[in-house]
């Protein structure tokens, strides 16, 4: 941003690394602590279910596996989007970005459906400490995915109006990092929250 003046060339930096990319990695390091705190809260409370339903009553592993798989595949389409733009094919990039956003939306749709089911089965935010920590952890992950979708759509729109620059893959790469991170957080959540049974 600092030296973003025409003609667009990579600005000089001490390390030769891109500022935005460095910032994104630093931010992701910070996000580790963010999700770490929520996951720890969940681990502390996963058996504190009070009179409400327990995780064993609620979790539908095949269902969540499918939505996890959808999110995992969205990382693949994100990689394809980046490699398209690096090969100069901006149309393909837009298609892959849209695909990524679509897969993300599918995941969010799945999460909304899951939340609805859980509420119907009697687990709400205020049912128990387990309910609170489950909804807030997965909800914040969902919020991250949603922000990612907004960024992907933004990239797509900007690209179609020619505002991303001719050879500029940097924004796509940086958003991609974010997207992959959200994916790996889900890998952890899926394993730690859904698969490992509560004891």
């Amino acid at each position: 941003m600092s030296a973003a003046h025409p003609p667009a060339e990579h600005p000089h930096t001490s390390t030769g690394l891109d500022n935005a990319k460095l910032a994104m990695w630093a931010f992701l390091g910070s996000e580790c602590l963010f999700f770490g705190s929520f996951i720890s809260t969940y681990l502390l409370y996963r058996n504190v279910t009070g009179d409400g339903p327990t995780s064993a009553d609620l979790y539908d592993i095949p269902y969540t596996s499918i939505s996890s798989f959808v999110l995992l595949m969205s990382s693949l389409t994100m990689v394809l989007a980046l490699s398209s733009v690096q090969n100069g094919d901006r149309r393909a990039m837009r298609i892959w970005l849209m695909a990524t956003a679509f897969l993300g939306l599918t995941f969010i749709g799945g999460q909304v459906f899951e939340f609805t089911t859980f509420v119907e089965e009697g687990l709400t935010l205020s049912t128990s400490a387990f309910g609170s920590s489950f909804f807030v952890l997965t909800g914040f992950h969902g919020a991250h995915v949603t922000i990612g979708i907004l960024m992907l759509l933004g990239l797509t729109v900007m690209s179609s109006f020619g505002r991303l620059g001719p050879d500029d893959s940097r924004p796509v790469e940086v958003v991609g990092l974010y997207w992959h991170f959200v994916d790996i957080v889900w890998i952890v959540i899926f394993t730690v929250i859904y698969l490992i049974p509560s004891g």
Binding site: L33, Y45, S132
Partner: peptide, 20 residues
């Protein structure tokens, strides 16, 4: 981010009846 999470949890407890 750690205090952020604590504050979110406090906020959910105060405003939305969560039980952190």
């Amino acid at each position: 981010p750690v205090i952020g999470v604590a504050l979110w949890e406090l906020m959910f407890d105060r405003l939305f009846g969560a039980n952190f």
